[in-house]
Simulated scan of single mutants.
Amino acid sequence: MSSSDIFFGEFIGTAVLVLLGGGVCAAITFKRSKAYEAGWVAIAFGWGFAVLTGAYIASGPSGAHLNPAVTLGLAIEGGTKWSDVPLYMGSQLAGAMVGAVLVWLAYYGQFKAHLADPEFVSPGPKGEEGLVDIEKQASPKAGPLLGVFSTGPEIRNTVQNVMTEVIATFVLVLAILTQGLNDSGKGLGTLGVLITALVVVGIGLSLGGPTGYAINPVRDLGPRIIHSLLPLKNKGGSDWGYAWIPVVAPLIGAAAAGGVYKLCFA
């Protein structure tokens, strides 16, 4: 496959993945959304369908990695050239950022209404009511809508958070590598896309509770960057202190999965 195939496949596929995945997070977060408080099952299935859609789009041109952890696992397994890895990962990050912007545009009114909610209105100086920049007042680690963009732990414990993401990503990447559909070196086949989407749903339901299961560095990093850049008053912090975990831990899990595959299945 050509470099342009890799770029456009991964860029567009990852953008769609983040658009639909971030979209379900937005749908259950905002009060003025018909899916408000739909719950974790909706999140798990929403992200599974997001993977399904993005991967079907990208499976032809690029093999539908859509995830640096998957790219790393396939490179260790031997199905992807190491020289192509930077292009895959760069395209995925760019696509994830664009997908996050599209979520903001699709829910533009809900973003404004959410951040103007009385819950986020505090007395201004001299007793006047007015919106206050929460980030400057309280310096929160995570703002009131960061969950639309990125993941965060329910219990902030670095060792546990890292291990949860490592284990969940290990399951994802090993499931992909053992499908027997990667002999061409192009990544997922048609059936593999469906299997992988169901694996993502299963991981979300079983292992997603502690951290929100990033299992994909760019799925978390790209939207977090966009959150930090969007001109949203009262948006709060982007929790950069946690941001390294959903980037590094999935790569560790993927490397472990690639090693186990070569040792036990190759």
Rank of each mutant, 00 (worst) to 15 (best):
G241T: 12
L20V: 11
E128N: 12
P123Q: 02
Y88N: 05
G259D: 05
V41T: 13
T53A: 09
V199D: 00
K81E: 14
Q92Y: 03
V24R: 07
G259T: 01
S2N: 15
K112M: 15
D183L: 12
L232H: 07
G46M: 08
S228H: 13
T151L: 02
R156D: 14
N67G: 13
G180K: 05
V173D: 07
S2E: 15
Q179W: 00
S228K: 12
A214P: 03
D117P: 01
P217V: 07
Q179I: 02
L181V: 11
S83Q: 14
A64K: 05
A55E: 03
F170E: 00
V247P: 06
W240G: 10
E165V: 08
K31I: 10
L191G: 12
V247D: 02
A100C: 01
Q160W: 10
G13H: 00
V260K: 04
L177P: 00
G46D: 00
H227N: 14
V193G: 08
Y107P: 11
Y56D: 03
T14Q: 06
F8L: 13
D239M: 10
G204N: 07
S2C: 12
A15V: 06
P125K: 14
V132I: 15
V70D: 12
Q179E: 04
T169E: 01
I155Q: 13
C25S: 15
P246K: 05
L174V: 05
V18W: 05
G73I: 11
G180L: 06
C264W: 14
N182S: 09
G259A: 09
G60T: 06
M97V: 08
T151C: 02
E37N: 14
P61R: 10
R32Q: 15
A106E: 09
G259V: 04
G60N: 01
T53C: 07
W82H: 06
L66Q: 06
G95H: 08
A64G: 09
T164A: 14
Y107T: 00
A42H: 07
A142E: 11
L72W: 06
G39S: 03
S83A: 15
D117N: 15
T178E: 08
I134M: 01
H65Y: 10
I226C: 00
G99I: 04
G258C: 01
I12L: 15
V166I: 10
K126Q: 13
G63H: 08
Y213I: 04
W244M: 03
V121T: 14
K81D: 15
V98Q: 10
L146Y: 11
V51R: 00
I6D: 02
P231C: 12
K81T: 07
N216V: 08
Q92F: 05
G189C: 12
G23V: 04
V24L: 10
F49A: 01
V85W: 09
G253C: 02
F111S: 11
A64D: 02
Q92T: 05
I57C: 07
A256E: 04
K136C: 07
V162L: 12
V218G: 08
I134F: 01
V193S: 03
V193A: 13
T196R: 05
G236Y: 12
L198D: 02
N161S: 13
G152S: 15
D133S: 13
P153T: 01
V159E: 11
L232D: 00
M163F: 14
F7I: 13
